[in-house]
């Protein structure tokens, strides 16, 4: 019926641009990843190296450790964000005066640049200037993220929660506002308590939205760079050097572009697999909800 030529025509500009800045670098990084490219070597240019870069990479403890740290960070932040977001959305759904105002305030951190979030939290936490070490010190806690790896890690987690929980809440609220009201009202009439409403109506009806929020949060947490970089610089030592930071800080000063490319490819591979798995789960859930 409708010609798909028109559709391709409409898609063409998008595909061209994404091809230029998305696909081309991808192919290029794949290509360079199989080569040695030393910028200061006598032989300038690319030398075929086969899978040597990758062979070296699977034994690169620094890289694997950064990957592990990134995962640990993701698990901590995303699980807390989801729980908090669910609770807040549940609370915010109720009608009360000033709801719009509170929602707007709640949305504020979303619009702040990640780098600026890092900067504000740095201002909160630098010893001698920030209120956090000052007041924690008064109650007897020695707080210094430039020194304690544990504290640095949890400060980054806390910052990320501060920054992104509103996104989860708002996504859930958006999902909720599109849902029919009857099941909730019916349950109220039947005398269901808060927990039952939450468990048997709220959660199942929101399942697709929850999965999508989960998906977006995991992806964003895995690739985090700027916030953490601004807050801790990846330190102390390598305590908060998550995988994105590792690549950014290690690849650029490195003189072997081939090895850096291989590292990028491996991270991409990892992300694509996680992305695909989550999307499959989402489409499956949607299909179940749809039929």
């Amino acid at each position: 019926m409708k010609s798909s030529k028109t559709a391709w025509g409409l898609l063409a500009p998008t595909l061209i641009i994404l091809g230029l800045v998305g696909l081309l670098p991808f192919i290029y990084v794949l290509y360079v990843g199989f080569h040695d490219w030393m910028i200061f070597a006598k032989v300038s240019g690319l030398v075929w190296a086969g899978v040597d870069n990758y062979r070296e990479l699977v034994f690169d403890e620094d890289f694997l450790a950064a990957l592990g740290r990134g995962l640990r960070f993701t698990i901590w932040t995303v699980s807390i964000q989801m729980v908090l977001g669910l609770l807040l959305a549940h609370l915010l759904m109720k009608k009360f005066k000033g709801r719009g105002f509170f929602r707007a305030i709640h949305a504020l951190p979303l619009t702040v640049a990640p780098l600026v979030v890092g900067a504000t939290w740095r201002l909160l936490t630098i010893p001698g200037l920030g209120p956090l070490p000052f007041y924690l010190n008064k109650i007897g806690i020695d707080y210094n993220i430039g020194w304690s790896a544990q504290q640095a890690f949890f400060t980054t987690v806390l910052m990320h929660i501060w920054h992104w929980t509103p996104f989860v809440t708002l996504t859930f609220l958006a999902g909720l506002s599109a849902l029919p009201k009857e099941p909730f009202e019916g349950a109220m009439v039947d005398g269901a308590n808060q927990w039952q409403i939450f468990r048997y109506i709220f959660l199942p009806m929101l399942k697709p939205v929850i999965l999508i929020a989960l998906f977006l949060r995991i992806m964003d947490a895995l690739r985090i760079v700027d916030e953490v970089w601004m807050l801790t610089g990846g330190g102390p030592g390598t305590a908060t050097r998550y995988v994105g930071i590792h690549i950014w800080r290690v690849v650029f000063p490195m003189t072997n572009y081939g090895y850096g490319s291989a590292m990028s490819v491996l991270l991409l591979y990892f992300i694509i697999v996680v992305c695909w798995l989550l999307l499959t789960v989402i489409t499956q859930a949607k299909r179940e909800a749809g039929t």
Partner: peptide, 19 residues
């Protein structure tokens, strides 16, 4: 796509543990 993902995974693990 699934096949390629598994292809890469096997190669990486192989290089690390069996090569």
């Amino acid at each position: 796509f699934i096949g390629v993902v598994i292809f890469v995974a096997i190669h990486l693990l192989w290089m690390r543990f069996l090569e």
